[in-house]
């Protein structure tokens, strides 16, 4: 089972991942699955009717708005980072949390390195499949590195200007 780190209650914890990622050209597996947006649009209805948990993988170019009406029945949204430097998914994550009000799991998959930990957490990502073999402890340390932040984002953290006002 691939390593997954979950961010809950301010802590990073290594967890077992019950989901199987299914590529578009693969046959369906039993149990809880993560599928592409295209596949979800074709098969999601049926899979959900079978009573399984379904997650949807969004590529950076796919807009979260396409999922808006389905979000209440989706178990998780996996945001793909095909490259470390591709930052579109940060916007996707914020829109999921702040505009769509999504409360389920938002997972970062792909080239996910601990250097991104704070950015991801701040944008509302709460599960990580690290590609650099980093541990939950290392993620926690990286996500807490900065004692202060300067912007409002999805994590509700008080930005510097709010701290100053206290």
């Amino acid at each position: 089972m691939p390593a997954l780190i979950r961010f809950e209650g301010g802590r990073m914890t290594a967890v077992d991942d019950p989901f199987t990622e299914i590529a578009d050209d693969e046959g369906m597996a039993p149990g809880d699955v993560i599928i592409s947006l295209t596949r979800f649009q074709a098969e999601g209805e049926r899979l959900l009717a079978e009573g399984r948990s379904v997650g949807v993988r969004l590529e950076p170019a796919e807009e979260v708005e396409a999922l808006a009406y389905d979000l209440p029945r989706i178990a998780l949204v996996a945001l793909a980072f095909p490259k470390y430097r591709d930052g579109r998914a940060y916007t996707s994550a914020r829109l999921l949390r702040e505009r769509c009000g999504y409360k389920g799991e938002v997972r970062a998959v792909g080239e996910v390195l601990r250097e991104q930990a704070q950015f991801m957490v701040r944008c509302g990502v709460d599960a990580f499949a690290p590609a650099d073999g980093s541990s939950a402890e290392e993620w926690e340390q990286a996500s807490r590195r900065f004692r202060h932040v300067y912007q409002r984002a999805s994590d509700g953290r008080a930005p510097a200007f709010a701290e100053r006002g206290e």
Partner: peptide, 13 residues
């Protein structure tokens, strides 16, 4: 300067 420093959404443009 403050707003753009380590902006969580706009650091990988």
């Amino acid at each position: 300067r403050q707003w753009s420093s380590l902006h969580p959404e706009f650091s990988f443009l």
